[in-house]
């Protein structure tokens, strides 16, 4: 075994170890504390867990690319809400009245296009102004959320299309529609990041931007494409979720950006860019959802759940730092 392989393996595998630990803990604790009679590791419960992971998970895949690229996107929650509004509202637009159920793909495409466009706008600003992505997307987070409120005021936007609900609630090979979307997105993004030139260049840019520029990699366009991808995925996440629920509040998707970033960071992606893995992000998403579900299972309320997740995030980052220190000789700064 080459030197460093073991520690790499440990780091890669850490998130899965954490998931196993959670499963054991909640199964055992559930026996004593659970308010329901069902076991935690029940098949239906686990399938539901996958389904519930989808909205955060789909966006997290996009966030992994963005963060590997050395940026961050805080506006995903707002894009998510805005696209949900577009999806549900557009089905009632008079121009689409004659379409019947054919309005469904039209609305989907419309919502996805809007998400991609909003992402592109973020990317374009980051590229052309050179302003830090954190600031740009902090601004667009507020701005896009403003659009949501301008659209319908404080009122929820609702429209139930039963064909759509049926589709969303379908189970194929036992997995829900949303779960399939999560799995497909994970596979596609993994492929993008590991097999395409665009993906490898994204790693290079995040790792050493000066070197990438010197090697003639066009940093701006790559960043813009990645912002378009995350915009698209935020929209896709909204499409998947609201096809089923049929009603969107203007506050929906708030704090999603933070949940997504938490999942990505738990999965081991570096905040400074250059390193990160899609598969580990998938693990991070599952770990968070497990934690939320598990704590609910043993009777904790939402506030407690948030507190615990926050503590675990800090603990994980601290552990990661300790593991990454090159022994005691490390420079103290």
């Amino acid at each position: 075994m080459k030197p460093g392989t073991l520690s790499t393996f440990l780091k890669r595998g850490a998130i899965w170890g954490f998931i196993a630990l959670e499963l054991i803990f909640f199964t055992v604790a559930g026996e004593f504390l659970s308010v329901s009679d069902k076991a935690f590791m029940d098949v239906d419960n686990m399938l539901l867990l996958f389904k519930q992971s989808a909205p955060i998970g789909i966006i997290a895949m996009g966030m992994t690319i963005i963060m590997v690229n050395g940026n961050i996107d805080l506006s995903v929650g707002a894009i998510y809400a805005f696209c949900a509004v577009i999806l549900l509202d557009s089905m009632t637009w008079p121009i689409f009245a004659g379409l019947g159920d054919a309005v469904i793909p039209v609305s989907w495409i419309l919502a996805l296009a809007v998400g991609t466009a909003l992402g592109a706008l973020n990317g374009l600003i980051v590229w052309k102004t050179g302003v830090d992505a954190f600031i740009v997307t902090l601004g667009s987070m507020l701005g896009y959320r403003g659009l949501v409120f301008m659209y319908n005021g404080e009122q929820p936007t609702s429209h139930l299309n039963w064909t759509l609900v049926d589709f969303a609630e379908q189970q194929f090979l036992g997995l829900h529609t949303a779960t399939w979307f999560l799995l497909i997105v994970t596979a596609v993004i993994w492929f993008l990041m590991n097999r395409t030139v665009h993906g490898r260049n994204a790693y290079a840019i995040g790792d050493n931007r000066a070197a990438a520029v010197n090697a003639g990699i066009r940093v701006g366009p790559h960043m813009m494409v990645n912002f378009m991808i995350i915009g698209f995925l935020a929209a896709l996440s909204a499409v998947v979720f609201y096809s089923e629920s049929g009603s969107v509040n203007p506050n929906d998707g708030e704090l999603y950006e933070l949940w997504v970033i938490t999942a990505v960071v738990l999965g081991g992606t570096k905040l400074t860019g250059g390193a990160g893995s899609i598969i580990s992000t998938f693990g991070g998403v599952l770990a968070i959802q497990l934690l939320r579900k598990g704590l609910a299972h043993i009777g904790a309320d939402t506030e407690t759940v948030n507190l615990v997740i926050g503590l675990i995030l800090i603990a994980v980052l601290f552990l990661d730092r300790q593991l990454n220190l090159k022994g005691k000789e490390e420079l103290k700064v």
Binding site: R200, Y203, D207, G274
Partner: peptide, 10 residues
Amino acid sequence: SLAEELSVAE
């Protein structure tokens, strides 16, 4: 001017 996380070939 190298990207440390990438392979030699990349």
